[in-house]
């Protein structure tokens, strides 16, 4: 499981970090509201912080962001000088239990490749929060039900999928450049499910990077939270994602 995620999540993000980061700059409204309504001086973690786009939303809270992808951590560190960033795995976080006022984990839990690991990931976030009433976490996962997105998945689609990411020319490593005279230009094999930021306009490599996702069904995130020993305070659907605000039960 861990080896599979290493190949289909970690290695992919390390390769696509700059391009991925360039497409991730708009804060999602519910995340923005969660962060801006925190009391001043709150201390939190952003587990899977990516390029750090949520670290600077509220300058009056302190956030330690972490990500499994070292290249994204470097980008985040440069972007957020008043916060801190670390390279860490969601299942073994180097943090003091019961010490955080809040936690974020946006678009991360869906990258774990079994139900047990997803529940364990949520539990590992919950244990870092202060007790019920004092600490809360906002979790976001990709939804299976997104009929109107360009992916077009619905409740009958396969939940465990590999989603392609095609690097555009400017983000490719120079060493990967096609040799002069090599004329094999192939279209992306990613088909209709390619996000519009993931175009194959200049596709020098025929193989896109494949990222593993578990697409969440309605109610599944809440079930996972309960299995992890958490309590759901609020939850909903926003733009192709399921979200939940959760706390510990004790």
């Amino acid at each position: 499981m861990a080896a599979y995620e290493d190949q289909h999540v970690h290695q992919v993000y390390d390769k696509i970090a700059s391009h991925f980061s360039a497409t991730r700059y708009k804060p999602w409204p519910i995340v923005h509201e969660f962060l801006t309504t925190l009391p001043p001086g709150s201390v939190g973690i952003d587990v899977g912080c990516g390029n750090g786009k949520y670290l600077n939303i509220n300058p009056n809270v302190f956030i330690v962001g972490s990500d499994r992808c070292e290249n994204l951590v470097k980008i985040a560190k440069d972007q957020a000088p008043t916060q801190d960033v670390a390279t860490a795995d969601i299942l073994s976080q180097p943090h003091r239990p019961s010490s955080f006022d809040f936690a974020l984990s946006i678009a991360v839990i869906h990258h774990l490749s079994s139900p047990e690991r997803r529940v364990e990931a949520i539990a590992s976030i919950l244990e870092l929060l202060k007790p019920a009433g004092e600490g809360k976490a906002l979790l976001y996962v990709w939804a299976l039900e997104q009929k109107n997105s360009r992916r077009g998945w619905d409740e009958n689609s396969e939940q465990d999928v590999l989603v392609p990411w095609v690097l555009t020319k400017q983000f490719k490593e120079p060493s990967k450049k096609k040799k002069i005279g090599d004329s094999t230009e192939s279209e992306s094999t990613s088909g209709p499910s390619t996000e519009n930021t993931e175009t194959s306009a200049d596709n020098e490599e025929s193989k896109p990077f494949l990222r593993y996702y578990h697409l969440y069904k309605q109610g599944e995130l809440e079930d996972n939270v309960k299995s992890a020993g958490g309590n759901v305070l609020n939850s909903g659907y926003e733009k192709d994602n399921w979200w939940a605000i959760v706390e510990r039960t004790t």
């Binding site: 300058p59 009056n60 006022d101």
Partner: peptide, 30 residues
Amino acid sequence: FPLHFKDAELASKSVPYNPLLLSNLLPRLD
């Protein structure tokens, strides 16, 4: 906890001074 530093190399990095954050952070520190 706390973990102990070894062979630490320090740097000073200027960031904006925020007394609102600091004064409310203080009660949360060990």
